[in-house]
Amino acid sequence: MTPADLSRTVLCAVRRAVGEGVLAGPVPDSVQVGRPGPGGSGDYATSVALRLAGPARRSPRDVAEILRAEILRCSPDLVTHVEVTGPGFLNFTLAPGSRSALVRAVLDAGIRYGYGDALAGTAVVLAPAGEIRAAVHTETVVRLLRTQGADARTGEDATERLSVRPVPAALAGDLFARLGPDAARWGLLRPAAQDRAATGDSLLVQHESNPLFTVRYAHARTRALVRNGAALGIPASGSHTDEPAARPLLDSIGDHPGVLAAAARHRAPDRVARHLERTAEAFLHFQETCRPLPVGDEKPSAAHRSRLALAEAAGTVLAGGLALLGIDAPAHL
């Protein structure tokens, strides 16, 4: 179960509660699901009960308890536990099998994993930009908006102009020639829009101290593992792995749709870049802790198939995110 699936499950529960007269008020168009905050529990959480409490004329905790029962009815095989915490947050613990479904969802969708319809029906016209950073930022935001179903473009009839801290003129002229397109784009997009862009030669360093190198290296490693697994006759399988070391990587992959949606809503490509860094770090730790390929005389097993599938899913997320930033994801590095 992906966060998008869980969001639809919660929305189903709201519709049922309203339809059966248990809960009063309008049904929202969408429900946001994210990581539990301080004091939370489980895999994911939502604050939808706080939104619905006013129209329902009930306390948020009352609304949360109503939705808790409906959610368990809507997906008893995918959500094993729903807990109400704080003023009315709903916290979800997913069934183990839902994680293998997540890997399968990524592999089925390819680099379009995380695309959705949260902004379907929304038209956005961004003002063209002449300054180098604003231009790169604007074209990237257009791509992000389109991943969420928005009709987005640039044009003179702009409805919105992005505010971006410009690159000093003395550094802007030869930036792409000096750094190359990939490093230059990372340096312009990785910092938040109002922070200073990165323009130094550190963007070219082939070392883990350079986040761009780490992300691209992690992607190349996923591709190498899949190639080597195929050569050994080990197919990638989306079966679930219960290994604790896989959990951070699964969590990061599961977060990808929400990151894309938030980056589009907030016009913030830097959120995608930071998420790619987290995913790359989680994958590199995973591959060191849980070897995806047999070592020595070790026989290929179901665990290796599952690990390879997870590696392939991680590579898919990294490739998709880099593509949205306009950065190449090489299979060899």
Rank of each mutant, 00 (worst) to 15 (best):
L189A: 08
A183H: 07
P166F: 08
A177R: 15
A230Q: 12
G200V: 03
R216Y: 11
P235F: 10
A183R: 13
A170M: 14
A230I: 00
Q206K: 14
Q206M: 13
V215S: 11
L188V: 09
N228T: 00
V226N: 05
A198H: 14
P191N: 00
L175T: 09
T214I: 00
S202D: 15
R227C: 11
A236M: 07
E208N: 03
V205H: 09
A197G: 03
R178V: 05
D174Y: 02
L225D: 06
G173I: 01
H219W: 08
I234V: 15
R223E: 15
A197M: 00
D201E: 13
R223N: 02
D174K: 08
P211K: 12
R221L: 14
P235D: 14
A236R: 03
R185L: 04
A197W: 00
G173V: 12
G229H: 07
P166H: 12
A218Q: 02
F213I: 05
L204R: 04
A230C: 07
E208G: 04
S209R: 12
W186M: 06
Q194G: 04
L232H: 12
F213E: 01
R216S: 13
G200W: 01
L204G: 03
P166W: 03
F213N: 04
L232R: 15
G229A: 08
G187L: 09
A177M: 13
P168Q: 14
R190D: 00
T214W: 05
A170W: 12
Q206N: 12
A197P: 08
Q206F: 10
L212W: 02
P181C: 06
G180I: 11
A193P: 02
Y217K: 08
R223A: 15
A193G: 07
I234S: 13
R223Q: 15
Q206V: 10
G200N: 07
F213P: 01
V226T: 13
A169Q: 13
P181G: 05
V205S: 11
T214H: 03
V215Q: 11
R221H: 05
L203C: 07
L204Q: 02
L232N: 07
L232I: 06
D195E: 15
R227S: 14
L179Y: 04
G180E: 15
D195N: 15
Q206C: 12
